[in-house]
């Protein structure tokens, strides 16, 4: 092939690439962008006893009811599903029985409660609340513990998320005189 022909073919390819539109940047706005400033979450009041340890546990109803919806999801959102409760009284973990967690599917979770030293707790009173911090709405269902599974494990039934985005699950745990809570975050696609 002649040199000129090669040049023409090269020009041809250059022309293709120069005419190809640049890739469109991913513009996926998080689909949970709206907030409602006066929306209040009402949660069932928790059972359990007041804390005698001097710590004041956070209010038992609604983890967002005293807060306005937040505008953005924190970049360093703590997604751990295994945590110490707010005042360090319990070690708590949550494991979904639907893996991966999907929207619009009723499913259960296994809750594990133990003392900070790892001793399982089987007689905890548990309340489950939650919602979408950026929307100001609560969970669309009323999940609850339906069964103790032994060794500190509890079956939580009745969870169904109905949209993608950032969800919080707030678990309030009471045993004897100790009440504490822990909040887990998960982000659903």
């Amino acid at each position: 092939m002649s040199r000129f022909g090669t040049l023409v073919i090269a020009a041809f390819f250059v022309s293709i690439f120069s005419l190809t539109p640049p890739p469109v940047a991913a513009k996926m706005a998080a689909s949970d962008g709206h907030t409602s400033s006066d929306e209040k979450m009402k949660m069932p009041k928790a059972h359990g006893h007041s804390d005698h340890s001097g710590h004041k546990p956070t209010k038992m109803h609604g983890d967002h009811s005293e807060q306005k919806p937040v505008k953005k999801m924190p970049k360093d959102l703590d997604m751990a599903m295994d945590k110490l409760s707010e005042h360090g009284k319990y070690k708590v973990s949550m494991t979904s029985r639907l893996n991966p967690v999907a929207i619009n599917k009723m499913h259960g979770w296994t809750l594990q409660v133990s003392k900070p030293d790892g001793t399982p707790i089987d007689d905890a009173k548990v309340k489950i609340a939650g919602g979408m911090p950026m929307h100001g709405h609560a969970l669309p269902t009323m999940p609850r513990v339906t069964k103790g599974l032994g060794e500190g494990k509890y079956l939580v039934e009745g969870v169904r998320f109905n949209m993608a985005g950032w969800w919080k699950l707030k678990i309030t745990i009471g045993t004897g005189h100790h009440m504490d809570n822990v909040t887990f975050s998960l982000v659903l696609k």
Partner: peptide, 29 residues
């Protein structure tokens, strides 16, 4: 050479016009 040139120009023209404006680069998400 001329034949190549013409062919090249024509090919480039068609490549340009056939470039679908509708094809979008959807991200993985």
């Amino acid at each position: 050479w001329k034949a190549f040139t013409i062919a090249g120009v024509i090919a480039a023209f068609f490549a340009a016009t056939a470039q679908p404006a509708q094809v979008q680069d959807w991200s993985g998400a």
